[in-house]
Design a binder for these strands. Structure first.
Lengths: 243, 243
DNA sequence: TTTGCCGGATTGTCCGACAATGATACGAGC
DNA sequence: GCTCGTATCATTGTCGGACAATCCGGCAAA
């Protein structure tokens, strides 16, 4: 038989405090927007020193469970904003040596069904937002920077139109990772802008008319175009993404 | 014209320190496994107090950029483990009132292409792992707890077989969110286990034989079965997930 | 080679303190 | 009565220093 023992678990106080507060937030005992007691008060309640409480707060803060509303002292409970947690995912993927191909493949899988679903679930307001985003891309002949932001914004609008939070959050890290290479494509490939604008136009009309399969097909082409863009811009698909 | 001004940004020292260290990790100046200097030394270098450094370290730690190897004092650089960051995503989704339907829809979109891609990209080792996971599910007639873990493990094996980190990481939060309701299904629906075992069997053979479209089709049915399971178990798809 | 022991290094936690700045109450002026 | 400046208080950001626990590395003993 094995003489293996489990390691004896030791949790420092700052972790226990963080867990205790975090648990209350997750179980909604502390609700969004509610203000946390001051640090000294927390220290008193937990029976630890204020420094210890502060370390716990830093952890909860970085998890997005707490935030300080601009120019306010007291901390308040918040839901983790999508960009923040997506940024965490992106960082993780970067550190795990993810390649351009992997990101592109994920987009291939995810985006067409999202577009299709958006065509079915979109509200009038979603259409307005989508139109605005697409128009913003077509209007600006400005820097690649701006163009990239507009492109990803169109993706975001489409995902929002699905009214499925999970899909939006799954997509967000991909967009963040896409941005740098997309910038290169727009810079180096002359026809990129017009191809993207065309795709936007087709996506818009498909989603407006609620045509699921058409929306899906156009998104497939749009993503396929990205691959073409990588080739034209001389970006190796096997390239490991870097910051 | 607008009289809007950007708020003047004030960053506390602990954020600056965290950013400075985090930036070195992301740019690989500090490489994985490398040990960080002691807190007192960091405090000296940054010209701040040790408490300030500690607050910064807590943030990096919770982002998974730093870890303490078991029973070691010094902190070392690490890549964020998938489970940790997936847990962050799951938490965020929970707090954003995600419903069973949303998770299920995401699975519908994501899993079939993953299975298909796995059929194409799987290595011999992947097949072994998949077989083992599937066998573990079939063998154990034990508690629902264990069965759920085996089921999700099969999903993980399939995702790993794609050799695409992005897909694995995109899938992980869904599995975490799926687990509780899956437990209920296995408990309440008598035929659930055999249906799942059947699906595993079909997925295994499809992926072994490298048949992409068949793998995809079987995964589609597998996920569709979950929906049926929800209905049979009396779980409302519109239900907001809770901890 | 393993075991026992020791000193130094490092972390977890505490105490106490202080300046800067939000929050709040209050009175002055329109 | 309402806005505005001001005084007061509350709270955070940061600091200095301290101490026990424990991990690390080396060295001697078995």
């Amino acid at each position: 038989m094995s003489v293996e023992f489990d390691q004896i678990p030791f949790e420092p106080a700052y972790r226990k405090v963080a867990d205790a507060i975090g648990e209350r937030i997750l179980t909604r005992v502390l609700r969004e927007g509610e203000r946390l007691p001051p640090e000294t008060e927390l220290a008193r309640q937990f029976g630890v020193h204020r420094s210890t409480v502060r370390e716990a707060l830093r952890e909860l803060q970085s998890r997005g469970l707490l935030e300080r509303r601009t120019g306010s002292k007291r901390m308040s409970v918040s839901r983790p904003p999508h960009e923040r947690i997506a940024a965490g995912v992106s960082q993780a993927l970067l550190l795990h040596d993810v390649t351009v191909r992997e990101v592109w493949q994920a987009l291939t899988i995810l985006e067409p069904p999202i577009a299709g679903s958006a065509a079915l679930a979109r509200s009038a307001q979603d259409l307005l937002a989508l139109d605005a985003a697409a128009a913003a891309f077509s209007a600006r002949r400005a820097g690649a920077e701006e163009a990239v932001r507009c492109t990803t914004e169109v993706f975001r609008c489409i995902a929002r139109a699905t009214h499925n939070t999970v899909l939006g959050l799954a997509q967000e890290p991909l967009l963040q990772l896409l941005e740098p290479s997309l910038r290169v494509i727009i810079d180096k490939v002359p026809q990129a802008r017009s191809r993207i604008a065309l795709a936007h136009e087709q996506l818009r009309t498909s989603i407006h008319s609620g045509d699921e399969s058409q929306a899906r097909r156009w998104m497939e082409r749009h993503i396929a175009d990205f691959r073409r863009g990588y080739e034209l811009a001389g970006i190796d698909l096997g390239l490991v993404l870097t910051l």
